[in-house]
């Protein structure tokens, strides 16, 4: 579900799997500690890059505000958790698991993501979000 920039991959995905992923943009288009929204198989997916160049993907839809906005949130850390704050009402979401940090009952979908040759690729939604590396 997350990929480090070229090389230091922390969640290795097989080459065959990655070949089926959707390329969404050049890594350059994704600034550190920011997100972009990508269209992946009809789904709005928020792709984030952290300070230490890990890349994560969550559903862009914010279940609290019912708007498609998470990619526009501020990225940072809560404790050791890399997170995004919804730009609407500031609920935090763990970038690794999609778990809402302010409401244990809420979780948004996560997607496989990889970076190959400077391109960010998004794979399928993970079945059971949250089983991190």
């Amino acid at each position: 579900m997350n990929g480090a920039v070229d090389g230091a991959v922390s969640a290795p995905a097989s080459a065959a799997d990655v070949a089926a992923y959707t390329p969404v943009c050049a890594l350059d288009r994704l600034p550190r500690e920011a997100g972009v929204c990508a269209l992946v198989d009809g789904h709005a997916v928020a792709v984030f890059r952290t300070h230490d160049d890990e890349v994560f993907a969550l559903g862009n839809y914010d279940p609290f505000s019912r708007a498609s906005v998470l990619a526009r949130g501020i990225v940072g850390t809560r404790g050791d958790v890399p997170f995004v704050a919804s730009p609407m009402h500031k609920q935090g979401f763990d970038l690794r698991t999609g778990q809402c940090l302010d409401d244990a009952a809420v979780r948004v979908p996560t997607y496989d993501v990889a970076v190959r040759d400077g391109t960010v690729l998004v794979g399928p939604a993970r079945e059971s979000p949250g089983e991190g590396p």
């Binding site: 300070h51 501020i74 850390t77 404790g79 704050a85 500031k90």
Partner: peptide, 10 residues
């Protein structure tokens, strides 16, 4: 410390 959040960054 850390990498900031929606409070300190703005």
């Amino acid at each position: 410390t850390g990498r900031g959040c929606d409070v300190c960054k703005p």
